[in-house]
Amino acid sequence: ETIDRQTQIELLTPAFDAITLAGADYDLKAQDSATGKRYTLLKNKEVIEILVMDNSFTDQVVDAINKDQEEG
């Protein structure tokens, strides 16, 4: 599934808002792979989750942060 640039912006903006609200310990890095762009959610430079952008991207980021905070 190809996601256009506008949709990417619409998915990334609330994802970064969630990261900002969660605290400065979290970061999201993009990296290109053979199968497309992947996003790595980090906390204190440790990998929390590796995500692929699709229509549920924002929910995946929020869920990963919530799960990490519950475990932390």
Rank of each mutant, 00 (worst) to 15 (best):
D63S: 14
L21S: 11
N44P: 02
Q60T: 08
N55R: 14
E70S: 14
F16M: 11
A15P: 00
Y26S: 02
P14Y: 00
S56Y: 06
S33V: 09
D4E: 01
Q31T: 11
G36M: 11
T58K: 00
E70H: 13
Q31W: 08
F57P: 02
I65P: 11
E10Q: 12
A15D: 00
I9L: 10
I9H: 05
T20L: 02
M53H: 06
E71F: 07
T2C: 01
A15F: 00
E46Y: 07
E46V: 12
V47L: 09
G72L: 10
Q69C: 06
E71I: 08
A34I: 09
K29C: 05
T40L: 14
N44A: 08
V47W: 10
I65K: 03
T2D: 11
K37P: 03
K37M: 12
D27V: 06
K67Q: 12
S56V: 07
S56L: 06
P14T: 00
A18N: 01
V62R: 04
A30I: 02
V62I: 14
K29W: 09
A30Y: 03
V52W: 02
E46H: 13
L12M: 15
V52A: 09
T40A: 12
P14Q: 01
K29T: 04
D68I: 02
D4V: 00
A34F: 13
M53V: 08
A34T: 09
A24Y: 08
K29V: 10
Q31L: 14
A64W: 02
N44K: 10
N66S: 05
A64F: 06
T40K: 15
N66E: 13
